[in-house]
Structure formats: C-alpha cells, structure tokens
C-alpha cells in the first residue's frame, strides 16, 4: 500500500496556460529553466512553483476555487513535481522550505470530502483520492492566479511593492485582529 501523501507528492499539478506569461513569468523565471539569475533581473521569486504556492494559498485563504478550463490544450503541467517544492539551494539569503508541502497536503485533506474510511476499506482507489486532492489544489491555485492577474491589470506595479504579497496574506488576519483593534484599515505601506 502506497502512502497517499507520497502518491500526491509525485504529481505535477496543472494550470491554465494563459497564466504563464501573465503571472508566472512576471514573478519568476518560469519557463527559463534556470533560476540563478532571478536576483540580477529583479524577479521576485525563483522557480515557477513558488508563484504556484502563492496562488494556491490565496485561493485557500479566500476559500474560493475556480475550475480550470475543460480544454486540456489550454492547460499545462507545471513541470516540477510537488515532492521537490521548496528544496532550494540555501544561498543568496534563501532557505529551503520543504515542510510547506505537508501543510499544503494537510489543507487539501481538510478541505476535501474524501471518504477515507472507504479508502481504508478499499472500496475506493488511492488514485481517485489523489485526483480529488490535486483537483482541489489546482482549483485553489487557479483562483489565486485569477486574483493576481486581476490586481496586475489594475496596476501593473501592484505586486512590486515590497510588502504587497505579504499584505495579501496578512489581510486574512484582519478579522481576528478586529476584535481588539479599531476599524482602521491596515496600513498598506
């Protein structure tokens, strides 16, 4: 019996092709093969999956999914199996962060209706479970890409402010803080 986590981690999620040039390549060296020049050229992230992770968490925290286009010709596989995500070289101030994979997996488990009892009883297949997990992941990320693209279309420099991405994520904390904070919106500086 193969571990679901391992089966899932071997997979290579898909995304809609149109985000390649509009989002992925804007923030990363996606499609360039090598990520060692990102600092020189001023890209915010290195590998393409880094943007994918960002997009995924945006969908996750908004708890919004967006189904990918049906037409498989308009989709593309990311190219880097999940099992390698975060295994970056520790240089130029960067640090490996492989643990993130477990959290992504945990989130997918939490947010999918998989009959794990049936799986353990062998009433359903491991493949179908992994597919559900991957589908959910792709749909969250798809929402995230859409969100980023929307912001970029309003202001092409939106995410090039140092803390713009961080602000997106800390905005999910506002509700908690509102209990003791005033109504003032967060300073977006």
């Amino acid at each position: 019996m193969e571990n679901i986590y391992e089966l899932w981690a071997k997979r290579n999620p898909e995304f809609e092709k149109r985000y390649q040039d509009t989002v992925l390549s804007v923030f990363s060296d996606y499609g360039k093969g090598v990520s060692q020049y990102n600092d020189i050229r001023g890209k915010i992230f290195g590998a393409g999956y880094e943007v994918y992770i960002i997009a995924f968490f945006i969908g996750l925290y908004y708890n919004q999914t967006k189904p990918l286009v049906e037409d498989t010709a308009k989709r593309k596989v990311l190219g880097q199996p999940i099992m390698y995500w975060g295994n970056i070289e520790e240089r130029a101030g960067r640090k490996a962060y492989g643990k993130i994979r477990e959290y992504i997996f945990a989130a997918l488990v939490a947010r999918t209706d998989i009959d794990w009892i049936a799986l353990d009883k062998e009433e359903i297949t491991a493949q179908s479970v992994v597919k559900t997990l991957i589908d959910k992941m792709e749909e969250y990320a798809n929402f995230g890409f859409d969100f980023i693209l929307d912001k970029l279309e309003q202001d092409p420099n939106y995410f090039f402010k140092e803390s713009a991405f961080l602000n997106v994520f800390t905005s999910f904390l506002v509700n908690e803080n509102n209990e003791d904070d005033s109504d003032e919106p967060d300073d977006l500086d």
Partner: peptide
C-alpha cells in the same frame, strides 16, 4: 528580511493557517 521570500522561506504564508490546521487535525 525580504517579505516576498519570507512568505516561503520563513513560511510566513502560513500566518492564516492555524484554523485550517485545526480543521485538518479535527478531521484526522
């Protein structure tokens, strides 16, 4: 501290994760 890189390298992206982690743990 690069805010963008910290989202990943320092896993700051998990800042809003505690609720989801709880969901996961409860489910498990």
């Amino acid at each position: 501290v690069d805010y963008n890189h910290s989202l990943l390298d320092k896993q700051w992206i998990l800042c809003a994760f505690p609720d989801i982690l709880k969901e996961f743990k409860d489910k498990c």
